[in-house]
Design a protein around this nucleic acid. Sequence first.
DNA 1: CAAAAATGCTGAC
DNA 2: TCAGCCTTTTTGT
Length: 278
Amino acid sequence: MPEGHSIHRVARVHRRWLVGRHFTADSPQGRPEVARGLSGRVLLGVDAHGKHLFHTFEGDVRLHIHLGLFGRIRHFRGDAPVPSTACRLRLVSDGATLQLSGPSACELLSLEEEAALRARLGEDPLRAEASLDRAYARLTRGRVPLAQALLDQGRIAGVGNIVRAEALFVAGLPPLMPVCELEREAFDRLWGAMRALLQDGVRDGLIVTPGAPPRPSPGRKRAERFCVYSRAGLPCPRCGGKVTGQSLAARTLYFCATCQGVDRMHGPRRKRAVTLAP
DNA sequence: CAAAAATGCTGAC
DNA sequence: TCAGCCTTTTTGT
């Protein structure tokens, strides 16, 4: 579930439905001190940065949530079901309930702790104040592969395995090129692709890459949402060649070697030299 | 039923 | 580089 778009969508939903309400909190599993700290307070605001969520309650109480790989947030209007035994935090108000399970972080932070955490995060394509200059400068440090740098939340925040694969495909960029060789023009294209995918994801609640196969591939039941992510061995929707899936820094990277110019290392949009007759 | 997989991150070697 | 964390959903017998 959780790449940046899911988190920003949650923040938007909470701003609309939960801010201004007076909550009682409990923690069926694991975080009694967090529940105690929040219980009886009014929620004042919600902010998302990358994959991190920050809730501010009255009395300067700040909740930090990171869903990690397994985390989930459910909300209910009116009656809510009994939470699972794994429910880490439940917030209940008149008419709205929130249940959080499986997060990798659910903690109260001081103003300073929150500031320190946010300072470690890179530019978030979903935040209005994001600076392309800063994002480009941070992203292109060092010689790590471009695809690996994209998952580094200190360079760019909110991009996960799906968005990196799909955005690199949309931008037609070779994922394994040294990131310091990424030209500004190619970066702008990539940033635009990431931002568009994430923004559509916030609006729609899930990511569907433009150009994804409209019909299920052979051996699949449903129409597909992605061009390359999780499609190793299946045909690329653009050129029909086989999509590659390979491990990079312990994550699976998906790409189309043909469309993303892997052999040329600098992308397919560069003009090929032509031998002219004398 | 059991097993596997999943969009993430950390800490130990 | 790898194991480990942690929950839910999907797939297979």
